[in-house]
Design a protein around this nucleic acid. Sequence first.
DNA 1: CCTTTGACTCACT
DNA 2: CAGTGAGCCAAAG
Length: 126
Amino acid sequence: MAAKKSSKTNITPQALPRQHSFFENVWDVVRQIPKGRVTTYGAIAKYLGSGMSARMVGWAMNAAHVLPDVPAQRVVNRMGMLSGKMHFGTPTRMEELLQKDGVAVQEDVVVDFAQRFWDPTIELVL
DNA sequence: CCTTTGACTCACT
DNA sequence: CAGTGAGCCAAAG
């Protein structure tokens, strides 16, 4: 074993996500969000046990763009606002996807957000 | 290698 | 009651 490659280019962060990364954990939770439900960055961060590193969840979403099974549109900020809508290619893409899921969005904010709020720390308490 | 940003949140003033 | 600041961890420049 001692054969260590000097090159660090053994992984492409764009197409090969690691399994033990903080990001993978986030994606795993997001994938379990039921249709018609939404969650927040803080809720996911808390579920991960990292305190409130909600910012990292946002970063994970940025990398999640390469994953087809990660409905990042279901992840909104604490106010239920589509803060990341501008990162979907088009400023209305996130809104359209949410409405397609049965989630009403008005003025970039999820309607009845508190009612549609899906908390991983409660739903995934198992 | 070190610095700055980043799709956030909570707390204090 | 509202606004500003600091905290958080990681990746990109």
